[in-house]
Amino acid sequence: MTASAEIPESMRCSVLRTAGELEVQQRAVPRPGPREVLVRVHAVGTCGSDVHYFRHGRIGSFVVRAPLVLGHEPAGRIVAVGPSVDPARIDERVSLEPGVPCRRCRHCHTGAYNLCPDVVFFATPPADGAFAEYVTIADDFAHPVPEHVSDDAAALLEPLSVALWAHRKAGTGAGSRVLVAGAGPIGLLVAQVAAVQGASEILVSDPDPGRREAARANGATAVLDPTADDPSSTDVDAFLDCSGASPAVLAGLAAVRPGGRAVLVGMGADEMTLPVAALQSREITLTGTFRYAGTWPTAVRLAASGAVDLDRLVTGHVDLDHVADALEPDLAQVKVVVRP
């Protein structure tokens, strides 16, 4: 291992012991192996999946069976490198792409490494995440970021990547009419990306008035209250659901023009009833998304140029002793960042 300075033997990390119970523990600082880097974590965004693991101890088939460090939206600075990594990378600011695939399966070989069955993804059992002072990761999944990009923004390149991948699946571009359901962090970034792409209409639907106002500030050309307005009366090229709510999905599908696309981004019910006859007769393409692949270079450019404003999403900060506060649902908070 080559390091910039003496690396401590131990570090602090926030550990999910069981659903609803977090504990700050001392653990050994990991050492980077071949083709790995050691990163001093400066910022980690909190995500709905962190909330779900904290509250329920599971997401679908992913079950927390042993103490787990949450957090999969990290950024920091490289402080040491393992064998076969250029020592010149030490002191480099990086945003971490949190899922390292096997690189050998057919999905990896075709570029769809987000579908790799053997991916090791931060904070997905049994892999620990980044609510810690240090983490290691494969060197090519530590993406350099310019010095003028804030630590918070570097961390939020992960949810920006979710939004970019959703738009790739939706096939949106200049002149597109887009409907977004849900104005949480992902929905707001989906709206920002739509604006960057030159969408002519960006409609965002959310029942919370504060979130609707946030949508206006993040690129929406119009906002809808699904308790009073009827999203299905719109006529859009693409519908991106970032809510996971069945009523929102059904209303959004009804809004898609014949030949349009619908993309399920938000995690909701495991099963729902869909209007199959309408999907068939109107030739609507319906797909889901699972993480992302190859999005970081674009995300870095958008953040570095100011085309996408990630800092405006940050509504609070906590340290490792107060991670639980960040994982309690609060509509007034858009994105809380942990600073280890």
Rank of each mutant, 00 (worst) to 15 (best):
L264M: 12
S84I: 12
M267S: 14
V204A: 13
P159S: 01
P146C: 00
V265K: 04
V300Q: 04
L189V: 07
V265W: 08
A304V: 04
P275F: 14
A199E: 05
E213A: 07
P247N: 13
G33D: 01
W165E: 12
I202F: 10
T295Y: 05
D140P: 03
P32R: 05
G129C: 02
A332F: 06
S150V: 06
V276C: 10
M272K: 09
D152N: 05
E92W: 00
G244T: 12
A326L: 03
A332E: 14
Q25W: 00
L224C: 13
T227M: 11
G294S: 07
F54I: 09
D91Y: 05
D235R: 14
A324S: 01
A262L: 10
T289M: 11
L264K: 04
L70C: 10
V256F: 02
V318Q: 00
L279H: 05
L188D: 07
A278G: 13
H167P: 06
L115P: 04
A3T: 11
G252E: 08
I202R: 06
P209S: 08
G288I: 01
I137A: 09
G82K: 06
L188M: 05
T18L: 10
P87S: 01
V193L: 01
G82M: 01
M1C: 07
L279T: 04
A154V: 03
R31H: 05
L70M: 09
R282N: 14
V81G: 05
H109P: 00
V276N: 12
V63K: 04
A324R: 06
S95H: 00
F121I: 12
A19W: 12
A75V: 12
V149H: 05
A132G: 01
A238E: 14
R58P: 15
G111Y: 03
V337H: 08
S4P: 09
V190D: 03
H72P: 15
S176D: 07
I7Q: 01
V196Q: 04
T315R: 10
F131S: 04
G71W: 03
T2I: 09
G259M: 02
T124Q: 08
C13K: 04
I59S: 02
D208S: 14
D206T: 06
L313T: 06
V81F: 02
T295I: 02
V180Q: 07
A303L: 05
S246N: 11
A183M: 07
D321I: 09
F141N: 12
P126M: 07
R212H: 09
R89L: 05
A214Y: 02
R55F: 15
M272N: 08
P231M: 01
A142M: 09
G210S: 08
T315Y: 10
V15L: 10
E36K: 12
L250W: 09
E97W: 02
A191F: 05
A228D: 12
S281W: 09
G259L: 03
A142K: 08
F141C: 14
